[in-house]
């Protein structure tokens, strides 16, 4: 037996892989295919499905009623990514410009909120943003800064604030890593050639940190597009994203085939984005 295994390393590999591989085949790959099949079936009268092939679900996905939610979700995810970048880049720059000791402490401080429960962090913003009893409106009203409560809650603004807060750390990390790898002698060389600070940034620092910016944007955009908890809590039931429409098909509308079609489309978009990202980074590495 031992002899046999030694002579066939591939068998060893599959023996090691088989427990996890089998588990994921049954409880991940099989469900994935079932959802794919479901997305081509018809809904039954009282929940469940009718085994009849149809493209109807995918046609409905492009119904303006639902497709607009897709576009809104993409718009919210893009704005979230943009604001994460706007806040995250200087923060990453700030951390990267500290001494090594402070730097690792700051990275830790950055990641601690990220490892606390997402639901709790979203709830924290609920108590801050709520229209009549939220902390921000209460404080501004009692200070006399505003006369009527600001519309901070139950809209896209609230969702974007919650998402930016939740995903900011994963934008900062890869940018920090890129800035940390940056060779300081390049900046000095640019300065010696009389480049202004703005020029140094635009011509040297920004292009060299771009891989980090792209990685961070991917890490923010994908979960933001698929978010469910944040719009459920901060959207106040009025402002919805595609994740909520999907969950409604299972919790309320009992239209599983349509819910399956929606999530197939969402997953396809994300996989395409991820593949594009990997291909472009591989190409960039090959070019370098």
């Amino acid at each position: 037996m031992q002899q046999f295994l030694r002579r066939h390393p591939a068998v060893q590999a599959w023996l090691l892989l088989s427990p996890g591989g089998l588990f994921l085949s049954v409880f991940f790959i099989a469900p994935l295919f079932i959802v794919l099949i479901y997305s081509f079936l018809q809904r039954g009268t009282y929940g469940g499905v009718v085994w009849q092939f149809t493209f109807e679900n995918f046609r409905r996905v492009f119904d303006p009623l639902y497709f607009n939610t897709f576009l809104r979700s993409a718009y919210i995810a893009i704005l979230t990514t943009f604001f994460c970048l706007l806040l995250g880049y200087p923060l990453a720059y700030f951390i990267a410009s500290r001494s090594p000791r402070t730097r690792s402490l700051m990275l830790l401080a950055l990641m601690i909120p990220f490892w606390t429960n997402f639901l709790i962090r979203t709830y924290a913003w609920l108590t801050l943003l709520r229209t009549n009893t939220g902390l921000i409106n209460t404080a501004l009203l009692s200070l006399g800064v505003i006369a009527a409560p600001l519309p901070l809650f139950g809209n896209d603004f609230a969702i974007i604030v919650g998402l930016v807060y939740g995903w900011l750390p994963v934008m900062v990390l890869p940018i920090y890593a890129a800035l940390d790898r940056l060779d300081p002698s390049l900046i000095e060389a640019a300065r010696d050639l009389y480049a202004s600070s703005a020029q140094v940034f635009r011509r040297v620092i920004w292009p060299l940190s771009l891989p980090g910016v792209v990685a961070g944007s991917m890490l923010v955009f994908i979960p933001a597009l698929g978010s469910f908890v944040t719009p459920a809590i901060l959207g106040g039931g009025k402002s919805l994203m595609i994740g909520n429409i999907i969950s409604n098909q299972f919790l309320a509308a009992h239209d599983w085939p349509f819910g399956s079609a929606l999530s197939m489309l969402m997953m396809t978009l994300m996989l395409l984005g991820t593949l594009y990202y990997f291909r472009s980074t591989l190409k960039a590495e090959a070019d370098a």
Binding site: G20, G21, L24, S25, F27, F28, I29, P31, L32, I34, V35, Y38, I222, P223, L225, G226, S227, F228, G243, I246, S247, F250, W256, G259, S260, S263, M266, M267, M270, L271, T274
Partner: peptide, 19 residues
Amino acid sequence: VLYLPIIIPDIAMAIMLLI
């Protein structure tokens, strides 16, 4: 197969398992 569960969003994985 090993990377997919990390990439796909919670909500998609959740309804896959529910079905």
